[in-house]
C-alpha cells in the first residue's frame, strides 16, 4: 500500500491552549500500535483541504496521542475547526526525534513560542522516566501570558524535580512571573554542561545556543528542532531541504553544529 495513504484517527478531545492554539487528542481507528519518540512529527490530513506536518506533543510514555495545533493556514484552521468525533488522517511518525540514546543525562530544554509544543513531549517523557536523567531544566518563553501553553502541567514538572522557568515578552497585571528573554532564564539555572533541546524562532535558537556554549555546552550536544515547509514527510518532495539534509528524515532534530549556518 502506498506510503501516502494515511491511517484514520478520531478526535477524542479538544483543549484550548491559547486563543489560537488547541491541544487535540486522537485515537487511531485501526487500533494498531503507534510508537514514536519525542521530537517526531506526523502528517495530518483534513480530507478536502490537504495535509500538513504537525509535531507530536504527547509523550510516548502516555496513552493518548496529542497534537498541539496553532491556526496558521488553510489546513491548520481546518483541523482546529473539527469537533470531537471527527476523523482525520495521520501518517507517520516521521523524522528522527530527539536522540535520547546519545543525549547526556543533564538536559536543558528551551522553547520559544509555539516551538515549545514539540518539547513538551520530551519534558513529559523525562518526567515519566525521571530516574534515567540527571539535572533537568525547562526554560520557556511566549509573547504574553495568554500565549503560554500547558500551564496546568508546570507544577507536575517541578514536582518531578525539574527546574521550570517561564517568561513572557510582554507582561501585564495578571502576570507575576518573569518578563524578558529565555536566555535570561538560563542564567538563573544552576547548570552543569550536558545536552540541550531547543525549538523556537531562529533568533531565539541562536541566542540560547550561544549562551549554552558560553556555559560549556558542546555545539554537538545542542539539539535543535527545525521547522520547515513539508509535503511528503518521507524525503522525496524536497520542500524541507536544509542544505544536503531533509528536515523530514534527517531531522527535524539536528545538532546545532549542522544547522547553525542556516539559522
Amino acid at each position: 500500500m502506498s506510503e501516502y495513504i494515511p491511517r484514520l484517527a478520531e478526535i477524542v478531545d479538544i483543549d484550548i491552549e491559547s486563543p489560537n492554539t488547541y491541544l487535540i487528542s486522537l485515537k487511531l481507528l485501526d487500533n494498531e500500535n503507534f510508537s514514536y519518540k519525542p521530537g517526531q512529527f506526523v502528517m495530518v490530513s483534513v480530507f478536502g483541504l490537504g495535509e500538513c506536518p504537525i509535531s507530536i506533543t504527547s509523550s510516548p510514555t502516555r496513552k493518548t496521542l496529542q497534537l498541539c495545533i496553532r491556526r496558521a493556514g488553510k489546513i491548520t484552521n481546518g483541523i482546529v475547526d473539527c469537533r470531537v468525533g471527527d476523523v482525520l488522517g495521520i501518517r507517520g511518525p516521521y523524522g528522527n526525534g530527539f536522540p535520547l540514546e546519545r543525549m547526556k543525562k543533564n538536559i536543558i530544554i528551551a522553547g520559544g513560542g509555539s516551538g515549545f509544543a514539540t518539547l513538551r513531549s520530551l519534558v513529559n517523557y523525562i518526567v515519566d522516566r525521571r530516574g534515567a536523567f540527571g539535572d533537568v531544566a525547562v526554560a520557556y518563553g511566549a509573547r504574553t501570558r495568554q500565549d503560554l501553553y500547558f500551564m496546568q502541567e508546570y507544577k507536575s514538572w517541578q514536582q518531578a524535580g525539574i527546574d521550570v522557568g517561564i517568561t513572557v515578552d510582554i507582561g501585564d497585571e495578571s502576570w507575576k512571573g518573569d518578563v524578558g528573554l529565555v536566555t535570561a532564564l538560563i542564567d538563573k539555572f544552576r547548570l552543569s554542561a550536558g545536552s540541550a533541546a531547543i525549538c523556537g524562532p531562529p533568533v531565539m535558537i541562536n541566542a540560547v545556543a550561544k549562551k549554552l556554549m558560553d556555559k560549556g555546552f558542546d555545539h554537538s550536544d545542542i539539539y535543535v528542532s527545525m521547522e520547515r515547509h513539508m509535503k511528503c514527510g518521507v524525503g522525496k518532495c524536497e520542500h524541507c531541504m536544509i542544505g544536503p539534509y531533509h528536515a523530514c528524515q534527517d531531522g527535524p532534530v539536528f545538532s546545532y553544529d549542522k544547522v547553525k549556518s542556516v539559522l
Partner: peptide, 8 residues
C-alpha cells in the same frame, strides 16, 4: 527535478 506538492 522531481519536487512535488500534494493537494486535495
Amino acid at each position: 527535478c522531481h519536487c512535488f506538492t500534494i493537494q486535495d
